[in-house]
């Protein structure tokens, strides 16, 4: 599983952690893998949950030395955006 892109959000706090992850995913194509490096209990709890809520697939969340976590997300483009109109 080769990441297309890596995002380091270890310096950020909620909700910016998720906002940056979301923005990175928006720039990627469906099926591509985003690697996210994160730290802190709150981010580790919230970011994978919010990402799944947005329709992406979380493949792995693994703890690295020094309290750092590595998250692998597959962008799922199959889900259409809600409530789009022609106006």
């Amino acid at each position: 599983m080769q990441p297309k892109k890596t995002l380091d959000i270890t310096a950020d706090f909620c909700p910016i952690t998720f906002v940056k992850t979301k923005l990175a995913l928006e720039e990627m194509a469906a099926g591509e893998i985003l690697e996210v490096i994160l730290a802190g209990k709150v981010a580790v709890q919230n970011v994978p949950r919010s990402v799944e809520h947005d329709g992406h697939k979380v493949h792995a969340l693994s703890e690295q030395p020094g309290g750092i976590f590595r998250l692998l997300i597959e962008k799922d483009g199959g889900r259409s955006r809600p409530d789009q109109t022609d106006y």
């Binding site: 909700p15 910016i16 906002v19 979301k22 923005l23 928006e26 720039e27 947005d54």
Partner: peptide
């Protein structure tokens, strides 16, 4: 591209699926 400042300023609306970075 949104700047770091813009990401923080608009975080509460960017998180919503109907808005996002594109919105």
């Amino acid at each position: 591209m949104l700047s770091e400042t813009q990401i923080h300023r608009y975080a509460r609306q960017i998180v919503m699926p109907e808005v996002g970075g594109r919105g």
